[in-house]
Design a protein around this nucleic acid. Structure first.
Lengths: 236, 236
DNA sequence: CGGTACGTTGAGTCATATCAACCATAGTGG
DNA sequence: CCACTATGGTTGATATGACTCAACGTACCG
């Protein structure tokens, strides 16, 4: 299932270049992680871990995008976030010592470092700077989650879809053809917004008629950012 | 506006008795907080801090219940959580050094300790046990938030209302008459569930007809927990 | 006794979900 | 090379959950 590693990235170099939380580590600490970590490659579509399972470590993304989602009562997936290079995932379960409460799946071929559970609490204990940054990182994610609760509870599907497109734009940027770099199925879009696939399709083509976006297959180009912001009532 | 303090609770005693995170502090640390903190009482309805404002410290609840909410695009409030004795609020803004992203309002007369901002990062640095527990606490809140996103995105209003009633039951328990201890207006219930006040009213009376709950004014008694769990697809 | 906040009910509307059919594309295996 | 299948995308028709608006009831409070 996994490919052979190409070149294993060194934590200190990697963290600095992709702005990971590990940049707050000392040389010794990052050497230790380098030694103990497990570099893994996953093909697009592979599941890294599943909701409810016990995991023995957490992941730091080096390349690729991973979607993190929960499965609702009726089996429908709700995408909680996307992780990109520099992000860590599964840290919540590791720190709380609980089974995973989300599933993580590679959206693209990706390279990740798997770091055993015990490292994280050790670092929190041994490196106060790191501890504080970790706390900030989690606080940040919590703040985002709370905003999203408010949005999803109060905004219409149309507003939320516009907002999601903007977030994807700000988080992942665009490719050479000015399309959103992240490529999602309509169903995945629906699973972020919290709506039905058909609704996403209909709204996307409305957005297109309103000259807010261009569509070609799975590619989405935002051509009127201001318009989308106004429609979504979203400000960064 | 504020009452005179009755008796200022000592952090070490208080933390142990109400299970606050400060129980992980050393005697010295808790003495220091005792010395530096500001004990405050707020009457029901008072706002402790407002979304967007800079705050110079965080609060540890000693008595009473505080609702924490965000204000949506159209001015409607979305209740994010309730804080009860032992809980801390506003820690997110303090740790991230950002303006508050929520408003906090006393649901009942309450006593709280106000602790200056700088204390929290200091403790994270000086006391690894505390740091780790703080991380867990935040992770826990994050986990709850993610679950709620999934629920609010996928469940019907009926399911969510049933779920909210159960959560209130588990979090705050019941009074001598077996009614939910926490007393909320229909509008506040709506602002947790993410729906209109009228919908809450209609659904509550349906629940009553279905012998799931009893109603008398603002008092709500859960008389069929199993039924509510089934209806809400909620398990603790 | 008027005022204010909260609660309730009914009627009408609309956004969104659901169901169903169909098309496009790509990969698979005989 | 072609049927076969799976997956994703699209469109239309229909149903309905939930919101909005409006009127009115209730209760407490100064």
């Amino acid at each position: 299932m996994n490919d052979r590693p190409v070149t294993v990235p060194m934590c200190d170099k990697c963290a600095l270049s992709i702005n990971a939380i590990f940049k707050y580590l000392t040389k010794d600490e990052s050497d230790k992680i380098n030694f103990i970590k497990d570099f893994r490659s996953f093909r697009k579509g592979t599941i890294l871990y599943t909701e409810g399972s016990r995991i023995s470590g957490f992941y730091c993304i080096n390349k690729g995008i991973i979607k993190v989602y929960k499965t609702g009562a009726d089996g429908k997936e709700q995408i909680i976030r996307f992780a990109k290079p520099g992000d860590i995932i599964a840290y919540r379960s590791v720190l709380s010592n609980e089974p995973a409460c989300t599933t993580a799946k590679a959206l693209e071929d990706c390279n990740v470092c798997f770091i055993p559970s015990e490292i994280l609490p050790q670092l929190v204990r041994s490196n106060p700077d790191f501890a504080l940054e970790l706390v900030k990182l989690i606080c940040n994610e919590l703040g985002e989650a709370n905003s999203y609760i408010t949005d999803i509870a109060q905004k219409t599907v149309r507003e939320r879809l516009a907002e999601v497109l903007l977030k994807l734009y700000y988080d992942f940027g665009i490719d050479d053809h000015k399309n959103l770099r992240i490529s999602l199925t309509r169903e995945e879009l629906a699973n972020i917004v919290g709506t039905a696939t058909e609704s996403v399709i209909r709204l996307l083509s409305e957005f297109k008629s309103d000259n807010l976006i261009e569509l070609s297959g799975r590619k989405i180009m935002l051509i009127n950012i201001k318009g989308l912001e106004k429609l979504s009532h979203f400000t960064r």
